[in-house]
Amino acid sequence: MIEDGPTQPGDPRAHLSSPATRSTLRIQNQLLAAAREYLTSAGFTEMLPPVIGPVTDPGGRGSKQVDIDFYGHRYKLMTSAILYKQASLLAFDKIFCIAPNVRLEPLETANTSRHLAEFHQLDVEVAGASREQIIQLVEDLVVHMVQRTIAALPEEFAALGRDVDAFADLVQGMFARTTHAEAVADLHAVGHDQSADAEIDWAGEALLSSKSSRPFFVTDYPKGSRGFYDRESRTEAGVLRNFDLIAPEGFGELCSGSERTNDYAEIITRMRETGENPQKYRWYLELVKEGIPASAGFGIGVERLTRYVAGLDAVWQANAFPKLPGVVSP
């Protein structure tokens, strides 16, 4: 990571015209071009994601949704495209989109170097896929994106001082898979107090991340740490068929994904378990009741991936118009 980098965005002119920002955004552009190339050639259709809707991803870890007045109805800005991704499978079996997400994150996240109130996700959903198949797709996709980018833009990496040898292990693939329970045990072994039934906390994630030389997957998060759409295992109660992809070198989480719940009664029950009121999900539940395909999918945080690949100090440096939680900015 770049040392002594600025920890808060400056004025927009200074940020946009700085050589570091330009190199970063070129890297981001190349990463996305590579993703489009890979997914399109694999038969995926790129969809344009909705920005507003009556309901959105209930999200996690305390962030607040943005309400908007839609002709007198309370609508939401998308916190993620998850509900629309599942619905889109009624049109195509394999879809992706690059979607803007808005989450009013808790103020305490302003200094984590890894939270933005507005960010983008590379969202992918595949009908009929299993968790194992979707994990393999994430791995192949990330390897392709990074390979293409370091090959295409050596001068930008040099300008940022990012040694591309950092990706020597990554480009070989073979990302490790560890379960949440194993990750918790590893953290306990080094004296980190990690709850066994919650997400890995940020400090814990940084610990795991700093021990690895390539990205790795954490699978099987416990119910109670994730939204209703991550499917519960049919053989292990309380365990979700999901995963996170964690970057090495302390950069932390890049991507979350799962097999999806698509059974109507199961979704309603899971909604209650996550404290949601099913009434507001009417359009989604009506689709589910009539049937939507079983699927698996994921969302890669575009700014987080860019930060890792470009070796940046903070995630806001990977966004042209960064909005940090609680900070009034353009």
Partner: peptide, 19 residues
């Protein structure tokens, strides 16, 4: 609507989301 599992998971989600 509550069942033992709904109560258990709602509490866990609160702890997870609002540490």
């Amino acid at each position: 609507t509550f069942t033992a599992e709904i109560l258990r998971q709602q509490i866990r989600l609160m702890r997870n989301n609002f540490p």
